[in-house]
Design a protein around this nucleic acid. Structure first.
Lengths: 343, 343
DNA sequence: ATGAAAGCGCTAACAT
DNA sequence: ATGTTAGCGCTTTCAT
């Protein structure tokens, strides 16, 4: 519909296209009077510019692609928001892709992003194994960092949570409230977060002398319904735990619902914890004790690593692994710590 | 990093660039043997293609831009998800922009999308008045439809909820449960949804003989904390309503929290309703009675209108206004309808 | 069925 | 400080 080109502006202002380009991109000094004429011409014609042509020439799109397992998961929504903020501050833009938990869709998105020549890619791979080939291939043609989840690809950077530390924080808190036995509810072991959190759970229950109940590790999805089902199972068991530690807040909210349906008092008879501190964690009843992830800092770090890769000569180099410690947010789904006075 | 071009493939296969293009885009018949040779060459060289160059030439990007007030609002998250689904089905991609409730940021995003030559724009304008200039300007250079919220710009299409019908559904239900007085909590009157919902509230309370309490229309934001504050105000008032009708689920969740803090039983002493049926509406206590929006159908309709505009010669034409009726989802925040037996 | 050539709109050498 | 020229990688007439 709009077809005003840079050459049109040049003709209108009586200068060369190069001069117009210099004025509009401020890439080189230009005479005061000429500059004014060019600006006025551009204004009069309603010149809009063509980012496609510019990108073809400069080989930069000022765009970063982001691929997440599902934007419907509030944690990823928050991560996307943090990335958008961070990019906006640098005048860059975000091209968002949703894998809908499918490695095939994810691979397709990655290919498309590379074809679009984004300046970098931030990806949270859906699957430990299935995601690896596409991630590896992509990392060869564009700066790429993994965020939150990761696959094992040599020479790529990763930013995420210190999962072991996360489990330490949660279990130490629970131990202080008097918990003697616990269960762990998480997703299938097909992504990195899950595996590490389970490892942390095992390590720190052992270290703190908390007993893991029979069938005390339940695998499902990162979803409320999955947590609900797991909760029922655990509550109906003969070996009911003092606490259910969940690998994310959605699962924890499901467990809370199961407890309510079963008439089990939280935190009186059962304590429950999550991870992520999604917005709704504070709105459920009882409000959820969880671990907050510093998504803003993670996003900033992701961008830093991305531009480092962009500047690097061609450095495969070692893959950086930057993990952030979460912050424990104590709410009403866990019990008071004896001796700890009220705030 | 990757620099394999179509010409490289052509040279490798011993054919002209034109032939390679024809094979890879299947745009014209090509000899069987030649085709095989080209495909093998592309494969061997790891040819990826350059979407920028293609877009420059074809003037199509297979990309639709979407601009929403805030992706952190779960309703918009759902809308984005629906759009992504619909686009994915047609092999197109979504370029998502978040206005963070700022008309200035929104205008910037719109400009950027046009510069990127997206094939179309779907926008939910943040502000009745402030958003208008940029929306109007954008609509002149690219097919554009408004979704959910709208500004008054002649000749642009809009898809959204039938807000009057929405209020009718809610209030009819409340009347049936025995509600005699009500209040309405919404955002400031700076966006289209709010104004229409308020109008519907006024019209249908009058029609159904429901009294609007003193100071019974409270304005704030589409946010939980805002609903919480409004809820306290209404509950502390001398003229406490039987029901609080909220303009979205976030507000309603805030009102529920206020009721709990004040020890007011829901739905016994106070009934509460929302709009949107966000995922968490069913997880709060008591689960929220609300109106579900058919976001998938809305997204599909948005795309249909978009391509209609793309095909149109240059038709300003009349702006279509397509509104969808919501579906009432009755949960525990409203009372039983007397005489209506259990399901 | 294939190739040659032009050009999408812009920027970056290279002149002057 | 400004203009001239070439060309980013692709598709698409127009020839053959």
């Amino acid at each position: 519909m709009n077809a005003v080109t840079l050459s049109d502006v040049a003709a209108h202002a009586g200068v060369s296209p190069a001069t117009v380009s210099r004025v509009l991109s401020a890439s080189r000094p230009v005479g005061r009077e000429v500059e004014a004429r060019v600006r006025r011409a551009a204004e009069e014609l309603g010149y809009a510019g063509n980012g496609i042509a510019r990108a073809l020439r400069t080989r930069r799109t000022d765009t970063v692609g982001m691929v997440v397992p599902s934007i419907l998961n509030p944690f990823f929504t928050a991560l996307v928001d943090s990335m958008e903020n961070a990019l906006h501050a640098e005048g860059k833009h975000l091209f968002l892709c949703d894998s809908r938990h499918s490695a095939a869709v994810e691979a397709e998105h990655l290919r498309s992003l590379i074809e679009r020549h984004v300046d970098g890619i931030v990806v949270s791979p859906v699957h430990d194994a299935d995601s690896a080939p596409a991630v590896e291939r992509s990392a060869r043609s564009v700066p790429l960092v993994q965020l939150d989840r990761r696959v094992d690809v040599p020479g790529t950077d990763w930013i995420g949570l210190d999962d072991i530390e996360a489990m330490k924080l949660v279990l130490t808190h629970l131990a202080a409230t008097g918990v003697r036995s616990a269960a762990f509810v998480t997703s299938e072991l097909t992504n990195s977060s899950t595996s590490l959190r389970l490892e942390g759970f095992r390590r720190w229950t052992a270290a703190l002398g908390i007993r893991v109940v029979a069938d005390g590790v339940v695998l499902g999805d990162f979803a409320v319904d999955s947590g609900d089902a797991a909760g029922r199972r655990l509550l109906d068991s003969d070996d009911r735990p003092d606490a259910v530690v969940c690998a994310d807040d959605l699962i924890a909210i499901g467990v809370l619902r199961a407890a309510r349906d079963r008439g089990v008092a939280v935190p009186g008879e059962l304590q429950v914890t999550g991870i992520d501190d999604i917005v709704f964690a504070s709105y459920v009843t009882p409000a959820l004790t969880t671990l907050a992830q510093p998504t803003d800092r993670m996003a900033a770090e992701a961008l830093r690593l991305l531009s480092r890769r962009a500047d690097a000569p061609r450095g495969e180099g070692g893959g950086a692994r930057v993990s952030f410690a979460p912050r424990l947010v104590v709410r009403q789904s866990t019990a008071e710590v004896p001796g700890a006075g009220p705030a």
